[in-house]
Design a protein around this nucleic acid. Structure first.
Length: 488
RNA sequence: GGUUCCUUGGCCGAGUGGCUAGGCACCGGUCUGCAAAACCGUCUACGGCGGUUCGAAUCCGCCAGGAACCUCCA
């Protein structure tokens, strides 16, 4: 397969050419949401980033299996040792079954992702549905000697692992420094070392989400699900593992150690991490309480929002920055994206109606290659968008009759716009193809035709009445050189 | 404190040694019965101070400011 897709591998801190282990198949695992609350803008970033990667890999001709997990057990509330399961806690607060809470937020998550036009992953495994696999995984690590049991819980022996392998390979951490800086916190812990992490936790009596295991009635450690489920669905070695940058340590670092300890090999070839969305320069996050949920964006129902922002505006906003840069949220930035997107989509609609000429006075030949090149350079969507805006200029000039385009070039332009705007960037271009919608559009066109007649007869009263009444109903009427355009 | 990273024009945001990304706003123009919208054009920035180089936003050093991770987090 001929292409030069390069992606940034966190493991080596540089861009590398993407070469699948088993072309044309590609295995990709991305850390999904913990379903104990509504998804906020921060959750949209990895979903969209890896949606783009998913789409682009498919465009390149790969057969992609995209696994995105649902974390519904195992994340502890406070400290590693004394906390309680987040989902269980929320359940007790709301007097619901834990799985009821999971289902509720999962449904809402799916709805938000649909709105953002994020494709469904190939497999969306639940941690709670893979307890057996996780127990087996713990056993493998115990068998290999890199874990120990302590009072019904099982911990990963980081120090021992570090002697044979290197713990900290992904995050650049040094275990000796970590032992020094955290020594004070050691105390009555069941762990040998503060850097050790839980593979299995014995449940305290009030802990409702619990399963039988060889060691105790309890629940799996927080990092285990990804190792177990990634291996199950993608194999012991697979191509890409993604997630937010904040997961590099400890989550992904621990995953690497676990998998390597259990399987005696490196599991993931390319580690990819999206950067954070910030508010006033600070990370938007659940624990900081400075988050705005996606539904709040869609409805505008949050004090920090000056208006509602459509899902496509959110998507476009995120795509206008490179995924490894932080993006600062602000109403100004979002409004700028909204306007830019509207202009782009109007240009797209205009492109469909352009009439070709004998020859072109505009040059569209390099567009496809330039967009491909930008995508191949670590998914540089902002550059793709800038190329599309450049092409938009040509579309508008042809539309205004200032330039001409040949039928061949027009087809190429349409093809490139369809490919990049719809298939790769995943932007929805106004649709509504239902019969009812069609009739309604024709009715508006009819009204505006009548207005056009009135204008020709200099019947300003009728002309203005139609325009004013439609405007009052929420329509935007634009007079053009030889007719009109409108939208809601 | 340790590790990693960032600082670009009014705002957002690309860019890794030479070839002024792009968007939004502003301003100018075109179109128009009026208006709105649309369209076209303009706006040459790179935290500070040194250094390397024929040449630096881009490489190196120092300083200033900010962020992420080190505890759950996308």
């Amino acid at each position: 397969m001929e292409h030069k897709l390069h992606i940034y591998n966190t493991l080596h801190r540089k861009k590398e050419q993407f070469v699948p282990l088993h072309s044309p198949n590609v295995g990709m695992y991305v850390c999904g949401p913990t379903v104990y609350g509504d998804a906020h803008l921060g959750h949209a970033r990895p979903a969209i980033t890896f949606d783009i990667l998913f789409r682009y890999l498919m465009h390149l001709g790969y057969k992609v299996r995209y696994v995105r997990n649902i974390t519904d057990v195992g994340h502890l509330e406070n400290d590693a040792d004394e906390g309680e399961d987040k989902v269980a806690k929320k359940a007790r607060l709301e007097q619901l079954e834990p799985m009821e809470v999971v289902q509720y937020y999962l449904n809402r998550y799916h709805r938000a992702m649909d709105e953002l036009n994020v494709l469904s992953p190939s497999i969306e495994p639940h941690a709670s549905g893979h307890i057996i696999e996780q127990i087996e995984f713990v056993q493998k690590i115990l068998d290999s000697g890199y874990a120990y049991e302590s009072e019904g819980s099982v911990y990963f022996d980081v120090e021992k692992y570090n002697k044979d392998h290197r713990y900290g390979i992904l995050s650049g951490r040094n275990i000796d420094d970590m032992l020094e800086t955290t020594r004070e916190l050691d105390g009555q812990s069941e762990k040998r070392r503060s850097v050790d992490f839980a593979l299995w936790k014995k449940a305290s009596p009030e802990h409702i989400m619990r399963w039988n295991s060889p060691w105790s009635v309890g629940f799996p450690g927080w990092h285990l699900e990804c190792s177990a489920m990634g291996t199950k669905y993608l194999g012991e070695e697979f191509d890409i593992h993604g997630g937010g940058m904040d997961l590099i340590f400890p989550h992904h670092e621990c995953e690497i150690a676990q998998s390597c300890a259990a399987l005696k090999k490196d599991t993931v070839k390319y580690w990819m991490h999206n950067n954070m969305i910030t508010v006033n320069g600070q990370k938007m996050g659940k624990s900081l309480g400075n988050f705005i949920t996606l539904d709040e964006f869609f409805t505008g129902s949050h004090p920090m929002l000056a208006q509602a922002y459509s899902p496509m505006t959110i998507r476009f906003f995120i795509l206008q920055a490179h995924y490894r840069s932080t993006v600062d949220f602000s109403n100004e930035a979002l409004q700028a994206s909204q306007k830019g997107l509207e202009r782009m989509l109007e240009g797209y609609a205009r492109l469909q109606k352009l009439t070709p000429s004998d020859k072109s006075t505009v040059d569209v030949s390099g567009l496809r290659a330039k967009c491909e090149e930008a995508m191949c350079d670590d998914l540089n969507t902002p550059i793709v968008i800038s190329h599309l805006f450049e092409a938009l200029k040509a579309i508008n000039l042809v539309h205004d009759g200032k330039e001409t385009i040949s039928a061949e070039d027009l087809n190429e332009l349409k093809s490139v716009f369809d490919l990049f705007i719809k298939d790769i960037l995943g932007l929805k271009t106004v649709n509504d193809n239902s019969a009812g919608a069609d009739a309604y559009k024709k009715a508006i066109d009819l009204l505006l035709d009548i207005r056009l007649e009135a204008k020709k007869n200099k019947d300003w009263a009728t002309s203005d009445k139609i325009r004013n009444e439609l405007t009052a109903l929420g329509f935007e009427i634009k007079d053009t050189k030889d007719g009109f355009e409108w939208k809601l």
